[in-house]
């Protein structure tokens, strides 16, 4: 079965991102396909590689990047939500005249249409948020 996952909260403040990660891992472990993980609202903050949690804490951002690498996941960050919250890739940096990028490995920035497409293409779309 084809799953997509929507993450509406950032890391650390809410458990939503942790649960979404554990759920995504379990989906893959069960042999299902993950069509896309979409990050919206404060969920876009899961995609900043500048995150530096204490060493004895989980690194939520790296964890997503690693999962994406291992399973070739399509992890999409909503462009409008990212612009509001300062999540920047090379293209956005140039377009908006910013002086840095912070998008972590495995994520890409794209439009909300990608979320709607995930709803259309997937058998199940599961929402995690607050």
């Amino acid at each position: 079965m084809k799953f997509s996952i929507l993450v509406n909260e950032g890391p650390y403040t809410h458990q939503a991102s942790d649960t979404a990660y554990q759920f995504t891992k379990a989906v893959l472990a069960k042999g299902h396909e993950v069509f896309r993980v979409f990050f919206y609202h404060d969920g876009v903050n899961n995609a900043t590689r500048l995150t530096t949690p204490p060493q004895d804490d989980r690194n939520i951002v790296n964890r997503w990047s690693k999962l994406a690498e291992e399973h070739n996941l399509d992890m999409v960050v909503c462009v409008a939500a990212a612009q509001r919250r300062g999540i920047v890739d090379e293209g956005e940096m140039k377009r908006n005249g910013k002086d840095a990028t912070n998008l972590a490995a495995g994520f890409r920035i794209s439009g909300l249409g990608q979320l709607v497409e995930a709803g259309i293409q997937s058998d199940r779309l599961v929402v995690f948020g607050d």
Binding site: Y40, L112, G113, V116, I120
Partner: peptide, 8 residues
């Protein structure tokens, strides 16, 4: 998102 879904 509602508006995008409608546009789709």
């Amino acid at each position: 998102v509602v508006l995008i879904a409608a546009a789709f």
